[in-house]
């Protein structure tokens, strides 16, 4: 198999299959969660649960307060850097935008490639930092399961292979790009059945948490 054949297969059946698996998995998981429902709160409510829920979806993007930020400083800083880097790379690199455009028929302007490249490095370095913390910090090592490391690896690989292919390192571009898409395919397949699913469910979780608190008049 040549690099071109491999790339073509990945761009064609490979990524389509992974996408099918991904979307099926995500829909499955979301239905599974939402269908379990929440029983109606019969207490005399002090505020609107849905308003508070929506509010919490937004407010949880920031740490609860300065002391919480201070207590978990490395986790929060590295976490932000990683997520911002990942967001920029996924949604603001022109080739990626074209991919979304081919599916959703809407596009948006991308960032200059060297800027995206910089964010890739930011994401990669912060992910290494997070991994280092996971293995070296007693608390995180205790909490971590195989799934945590698997999720880390399948997230790290697309970033790494994307970086390598952009810089034409290690392998010919067709191969590297093919491997990049393969790593994304792997991520997509694994995504719905691991904690990676949090990218979708955190909105539900925050909503419920905010609603439960908001009905009691607690603003978060």
């Amino acid at each position: 198999m040549s690099g071109a054949e491999f790339l073509l297969w990945m761009r064609g059946p490979g990524i389509s299959f992974a996408a099918l698996f991904f979307i099926a998995g995500v829909v499955l998981r979301l239905i599974e969660i939402l269908m379990l429902g929440r029983t109606k709160n019969l207490a005399e409510l002090r505020g609107s649960g849905s308003t508070a829920g929506m509010r919490t979806i937004a407010t949880r993007f920031l740490p609860a307060d300065a002391n919480t930020f201070r207590r978990s400083l490395p986790t929060i800083v590295l976490g932000y850097l990683f997520h911002i880097g990942l967001f920029v790379v996924i949604f603001l690199l022109t080739p990626h935008i074209k991919l979304f455009q081919s599916v959703f028929h809407i596009g948006w302007p991308g960032l200059p490639t060297p800027v995206v490249d910089f964010f890739t490095v930011v994401a990669l370095v912060s992910m290494l930092g997070l991994l280092w913390r996971r293995v070296s910090n007693r608390l995180l090592r205790f909490l971590s399961t195989g799934e945590d490391y698997l999720s880390w690896a399948v997230t790290f690989m697309p970033l790494l292979t994307g970086y390598l292919s952009y810089h034409h390192l290690l392998l010919p571009y067709s191969w590297m790009l093919g491997i990049h898409i393969l790593s994304v395919a792997l991520l997509l397949v694994i995504f719905p059945f691991t904690k990676l699913m949090h990218s979708f469910t955190l909105f539900i979780a925050r909503y419920y948490n905010g609603a439960i608190a908001g009905e009691k008049g607690v603003q978060q």
Binding site: G12, S16, L20, S102
Partner: peptide
Amino acid sequence: SMPTGHFSTALGYGVAIG
């Protein structure tokens, strides 16, 4: 970077299966 083949169809099937 655009997928070839029946990517959107695959997504459609994915939603239905899911």
